[in-house]
């Protein structure tokens, strides 16, 4: 597993671009997908698993909830920790029902984003694994 690899799933290109730039500056390798379906295809076609998935909830084609249930059914992917990044004000309570390891509310501050990533991709054991 590549500790410094992150997958970002969001249907907004501007968000994908800026998060990728920020994370790459910090030495992360970043894969992106614009919906849950694309994310699943990419995860299944790639031999290096990311150490974290940053997941938007409201997306076309396959939303964050559907992605989570697909992920839970796939033994290869089931254990990858997920942090939800959503504009929903109740993201925290929704994150609880999604059984993810973290949540960030949009708009998220850069430092907050980096702190959460560091916690999951750092040298220590990432939470939720």
């Amino acid at each position: 597993m590549d500790r410094k690899k992150v997958m970002v799933v969001d249907d907004d290109d501007a968000i994908l671009d800026v998060i990728r730039d920020i994370l790459e500056d910090e030495g992360y390798r970043v894969a992106t997908a614009t919906n849950g379906r694309e994310a699943l295809d990419r995860l299944r076609g790639d031999d290096t698993r990311p150490s974290l998935i940053l997941l938007d909830l409201m997306m076309p084609v396959m939303d964050g909830w559907a992605f989570r249930s697909e992920q839970a059914r796939d033994p290869e992917l089931e254990s990858i920790p997920v942090v939800v990044l959503s504009a929903d004000a109740n993201v925290r309570s929704k994150a609880d029902t999604l059984q993810v390891s973290g949540y960030l509310r949009k708009p998220v501050g850069m430092q907050e984003l980096l702190d959460v990533l560091a916690a999951h991709c750092g040298e220590g054991t990432p939470p939720g694994s």
């Binding site: 907004d12 501007a14 968000i15 671009d17 800026v18 998060i19 730039d21 920020i22 500056d25 409201m58 504009a87 929903d88 004000a89 949009k106 708009p107 998220v108 501050g109 850069m110 430092q111 984003l113």
Partner: peptide, 21 residues
């Protein structure tokens, strides 16, 4: 409201991150 909040916050997210970067 749910859609509006999503639509308003989406550009705010990239705006804020870009500025902080």
């Amino acid at each position: 409201l749910s859609v509006a909040s999503h639509e308003l916050r989406t550009p705010l997210t990239s705006l804020l991150l870009a500025l902080q970067k």
